[in-house]
Design a protein around this nucleic acid. Structure first.
Length: 130
RNA sequence: UGAGUCGGCCAGGCAAUCGCUGCUUCGUAAGAAGGAGAGGAAAGUCCGGGCUCCACAGGGCAGGGUGCCAGAUAACGUCUGGGCGGCGAAAGCCGACGGAAAGUGCAGCAGAAAGGAAACCGCCGUCCGCAAGGGCGGUAAGGGUGAAAAGGUGCGGUAAGAGCGCACCGCAGUCCUGGUAACAGGGCUGGCGAUGGUAAACCCCACCCGGAGCAAGGCCAAAUAGGGUCCCAUUAGGCGUGGCCCGCGCUGGGACCGGGUAGGCUGCUUGACCUUGAGGGUGACCUCAAGGCUAGACGAAUGAUUGCCCAAGACAGAACCCGGCUUACCGGCCGGCUCACACU
RNA sequence: UGGGCCGUCGCCAAGUGGUAAGGCAACGGGUUUUGAUCCCGUCAUUCGCAGGUUCGAAUCCUGCCGGCCCAG
């Protein structure tokens, strides 16, 4: 497997995977068009899942475009990410962004959420030690 | 050339890098290579069919659909050809286009009267009266109301009128001719107080329709889940707690058998298929021959970035598969036909 | 994927062939010293949109648009 691939082991697959993240959110990152939730992955690898409703992004083409770009960004930045499961929740107006804007914001938000998660982990370790 | 009209087609291209999903080949494997990878609407889910399971002797009722005729088709509410009606100068376009003498119902307001009826203003005759006017009778041409008032126009006729008579048109009946038929054309008869409108009102007539859907259905199949049969234990033993005993809590062990949840596999793409040619048919379409294989995912693949070119890229993403309909859509190309103008 | 329901004033709604009830809100006026209450008045011509049937359509028919719910 090449280092830059995006195989199925890097995705959230079943309803159980999604539930585990929702039940215990360890880090969040938000901006007006979108919300990211994250928690430690059980597989030891970073994984990505999407929830984009028909209500927020009208056409199937629009939803596909967002998922493709997010995956692309995830794939290219895979090496920098800690082993966490990330859920990307789409909000209204997400389809209003251009490809270039999506690239920029997704890259930024992935960095943000992983940074926050690492901080959270340090904090919880300290707490448990003390 | 312009205007109109009808039909068909295209839906950015190329290159580099990094990716995604099947398939084939190689490889023990990791993986590598090759080749393939959304649409004309993939959409809405409005019809029709295949496929699968369930139900079913046959027939009928109920309910729903279709509705000029003939054909095409697996089938259709689709398509083709024809008829009739409407629009248009024409090409052409549009039409739920069966039945109102089988029955029931409905029609506000206006109007005399809204259906087996009737006479408000009138017109005419006659009687009474000096007159104004009134009584009785005839009439339905004119006025008025209405969406709609029981043939239309003209001439004759009459007291005034009226299919009362005649001509033409319309209507009804009947016969003939053409046509598979819808229907068209013609002759004769009736004189038209018969038969008004509405069936996307109930209804009648003809024809059609069993129900559910690929999350259908089939196969495999975890668990401290749970059923059955047999064998072995029987108040012992086992398991948990604990270092051990007591105590406390829980009850068997083994084999086999089907059912089946999570989950997985399958159904899943070779088909009413596509291309070319020949033949039949006005046409929709059909037949034959040769060649071809053209997405098959399952949180769901066909993308991203950069560069170049141009006519500057719309609407939009397969989810079992087909045939239609409808809706969305930047722009471009080709062809048929009609009309107008100009030239030869 | 399949099935069902609903769109009528700013909000809740009745009306199912004869010209759109009612309540709340809003606005104007009256009563009151003022306010609340109460009384009177005003408020729908795109009845989700577009066609059609009919003399006449919110109502009947057809096609769209939007919203909601259910099954697995």
């Amino acid at each position: 497997m090449s280092a830059n691939g995006h195989p199925r082991t890097h995705r959230l697959l079943t309803a159980g995977d999604f539930r585990s993240v929702f039940d215990q959110v360890e880090a969040k990152a938000a901006f007006p068009q979108c919300l990211l939730l994250a928690r430690r992955s059980q597989t030891g690898q970073a994984r990505l899942g999407f929830i984009i409703s028909k209500k927020n992004v009208r056409t199937a083409v629009g939803r596909n475009r967002i998922k493709r770009i997010a995956r692309e960004v995830f794939r290219l930045n895979y090496d920098t990410l800690p082993p966490i499961d990330i859920i990307l929740l789409g909000r209204k107006g997400l389809d209003g962004l251009s490809n270039e804007e999506l690239h920029k914001t997704f890259a930024k938000q992935f960095r943000k959420v992983s940074r926050r998660w690492l901080k959270e982990q340090e904090g919880s370790v300290e707490k448990s030690e003390s």
